[in-house]
Design a protein around this nucleic acid. Structure first.
Lengths: 151, 151
DNA sequence: TCCATATCCTACCAGCACGGTCGGATTGCC
DNA sequence: GGCAATCCGACCGTGCTGGTAGGATATGGA
């Protein structure tokens, strides 16, 4: 019922990258300092984003990360999916190899899996909300609240 | 990102109760057998539903459980909430005492919590889908698919 | 060339929640 | 009284989560 901290950290990282100009890369250390997060752990988080093709990187001195696409073209469902794996409200949604008896659905179980109907709706609700939110929105929100504070 | 098995078991239990006539109580053992779930564990699950006032119980021989209200009047958000606790996509939503630095939001953190905007939307999506689904729907679905199999 | 700064990669670890078991107390029908 | 139930709390193994450690590799600058 709860997303792991990878999602939280990863989203913050993406917002931070969205705030930077994509000309020069931003180092993880800068982000870790700004957000107060453990650098070594952020490395693991950003690795997922890179493998998903959401950020690009340059190694060596003055290296760092930047968004692979403009923030307007990044739906948050991609980000969360990269960080958390498949978006699923129940285990049997992601592992079809139903080792545990958690899900007795369709096959010979006697009755159709009524719960599956429920979890499908929930999944739809989650995905829809993530699909209609772009990274650019979050970046702008972050800028606006920052401004409100300064004023 | 995933509900625990308590939710799965509890929802199935509620559906099972919804299929029974509320005249006489249904024993946990009958449900455990029908669904292939561990009885002792189901006891813990049903305890939550009872404390939430969703089911009623009678002790002693021929005792058991039944729905406290007609299935049409039970929104699944109540059921899931009773089983899982507060519906929250991120930890800082349920524990305001932000011990871990997970959520750096508003207070003095420098910038507004952009992630909170995202998680709020996700939470809304989940709750809406759970609110618009009644137990009666699931019961009827279960009856219909059962019929389809028999045919 | 050498050093500082980065990304990258893998192994490791402690804590804790989850799923589940067990034993027993209590209640109530026959 | 005995059996069938609900109730209650303690316990426990295992896996995942959040995080650390250590090093390999790449690259720009002095």
């Amino acid at each position: 019922m709860i997303f792991s901290s990878k999602a939280e950290y990863g989203v913050r990282l993406m917002v931070e990258l969205g705030r930077q100009s994509p000309e020069q890369p931003t180092s993880l250390k800068a982000i870790a300092d700004a957000e107060g997060l453990p650098l070594a752990y952020l490395e693991q988080v950003v690795a997922r984003l890179r493998k998903a093709g959401l950020v690009m990187s340059a190694r060596g001195a003055h290296g760092g990360y930047w968004l692979a696409r403009p923030a307007e073209d990044i739906a948050m469902v991609e980000v969360v999916q990269a960080l958390e794996g498949a978006i699923a409200p129940m285990e049997c949604f992601v592992h079809d190899h139903t080792e545990r008896v958690l899900c007795s659905h369709e096959p010979d179980a006697g009755r159709g899996c009524a719960t599956k109907l429920l979890w499908t709706r929930v999944q739809g609700g989650i995905i829809r909300s993530l699909q209609t939110t772009t990274l650019a929105e979050l970046v702008e929100f972050s800028r606006r609240t920052e401004l409100a504070r300064t004023a």
